[in-house]
Structures are given as C-alpha cells and as structure tokens.
C-alpha cells in the first residue's frame, strides 16, 4: 500500500532520514518510536503530504504521494486537532459538508439527516454522545482526542496517521484510548501509522514496531541522519530487547534509572 524506496530527507546539510526501504500493507498498525529528532515525525509528515522526500520515492498504491494533505489520509495530532469554533456534533457534521458539496459546504436537501445519524452513531461508539453541544474547550483532553479520532474516521481515510495523539493525556485516560483505538482498528480494518515516544505504548498497540535511530552513534559525521534500525513484528519480543531499545530511545533516562538502582 505505502512503499518507501531508498528514501532520503535532509534539511540543508542536516540529514534526517537515510535510506528508508519499507512497505506498509493494508490493515497494518505501525508504531514508530525513536529518540527526539530521529525523523519519525518527518516520515509521518511525508505520508501526510506536508513534507516532500529529498531523494528516493514514496508511493501510495504504486503512485507518487500528492504534495499536499488529501482525503485519503486521516490524521490526529497531539493538539489543535478539532475545530475550536464548532460544537462536538458540528465538528463531525463539517466532515459531511466538506465531502458532499464542493463549494460553500451546505448540505443538499435530504443529505443532512442520514449524515447526522451516522455522526451520532460514531459519537456513541467513542462515548461522546452526551456532550453534543459542548465546545472543544469544555472537553477534557481525552474527550477532545476521542472527538479528533471520530472526526478523522468519519472522513473515511485509507490510512490514519496518529502523531503522538496521547502524549498529553494522563496514564489512565491513555489506557482507555488504547482500547478504543484497537477496537476501531479491528472493526474498520484501516491502516494506522502512529508516532509515539512511549515504547510501552508502541509495543502494546500495533502489529509492527519501527525503531528509528542513527545507524552508527559513533560516526564522525555529525550530520548523519537516522534510519530504521528495527522493524519488529509485535507479539514475541523478549524483555532484554525491550530494555535495549528503551536504552536507545531514552539514553539519559535509563542511565539515571540504572544509576539510582545501584
């Protein structure tokens, strides 16, 4: 479905991603982890269409990606993911307005009711059916993200991108969100690509875990970019590997933890 062929991305001299060769198949749930600045978000932005590869090819179903965001790809960001001037229900109805009508976005006669029903059903599924008239600022962080996910799904994208969507949530809410995402993913059979900085989250969700890092930490070349260093099917990973990965992603934190353990 998505194919990266010898993909490079650099900003000026600074190389961010090097030699990416991967394929994502329909229905996969990919989680991407790596230290900050490792290019995982850059890769996501290339799929989204807000960044272009500097070299190499990124293909969607064999065709080049459009250079701007399009309706084939849905996205949920960590924040600002919903429209702050619309109520919960209107945030979903606007999806119908965008899709049905190519000018100002008014529903044609008879189009609105079925769409409202569809939106209500989805809101019930994500547990927001009792706050239809609230504005996003009145929702908790978890509710706002559930709304953002519902909104993105209503657009019926082929691929859903999640850019650290649960980064700002507390652990309890995060757990609920994991459950919701897994449920929706199983039910809809959609392809999901997710960036996270939480390795545990990466292991728990998803069918494949991608770890981004510089291929060689001791390289003389300071401008060296990152690449995919692990591409793991999830389900049978040993704790030893988890520790090693954790150490790579959060070198300082795990150093402190191991020091304080002594």
């Amino acid at each position: 479905m998505i194919e990266a062929k010898n993909l490079f991305k650099y900003y000026g001299k600074q190389s961010v991603l090097e030699k990416m060769n991967v394929t994502i198949r329909q229905g996969e749930f990919i989680t991407m982890v790596g230290p900050s600045g490792c290019g995982k978000s850059t890769f996501l932005k290339m799929i989204l269409g807000t960044e272009k590869p500097s070299q190499g090819k990124l293909l969607l179903n064999g065709k080049s990606f459009p250079n701007e965001p399009s309706a084939e790809i849905g996205v949920v960001f960590q924040q600002y993911s919903v429209f702050s001037h619309l109520t919960v229900l209107d945030n979903l109805l606007i999806v119908g307005r965008f899709k049905r009508n190519k000018t100002l976005g008014f529903f044609a006669k008879g189009q609105k009711r079925p769409f409202v029903e569809k939106a209500l059903a989805l809101l019930e599924k994500v547990g927001l059916d009792n706050v239809l008239d609230k504005y996003p600022h009145e929702l908790s962080g978890g509710m706002a993200q559930r709304l953002a996910i519902a909104q993105a799904l209503l657009g019926e994208p082929k691929i859903l991108l999640l850019d650290e969507p649960f980064g700002a949530l507390d652990p309890g809410t995060r757990k609920d969100m994991h459950k919701l995402v897994l449920e929706l993913w199983k039910e809809l059979g959609i392809t999901i690509v997710m960036v996270t900085h939480d390795l545990k989250e990466g292991f728990y969700l998803g069918t494949r875990l991608w770890v981004f890092d510089k291929a060689n930490h001791y390289s003389v070349n300071k401008n060296q970019g990152s690449t995919l260093i692990y591409d793991l099917p999830i389900g049978n990973n040993e704790p030893e590997l988890y520790r090693e990965l954790d150490n790579r992603i959060h070198p300082v934190e795990s150093f402190i933890i191991s020091q304080s353990a002594k």
Binding site: A71, F77, V95, F98, Q151
Partner: peptide, 19 residues
C-alpha cells in the same frame, strides 16, 4: 494543524476559508 486536518477531511480552499 487545523488547516491540515480540514484538508484530510476533504476540504478545498474555498471551504477552508468559509468554514
């Protein structure tokens, strides 16, 4: 993010400006 999100939901330029 809001404008990107609108585009991923199928909005064109006119719709983004008005909606």
């Amino acid at each position: 993010e809001q404008l990107i999100k609108a585009q991923t939901l199928g909005a064109n330029s006119v719709q983004m400006i008005f909606r």
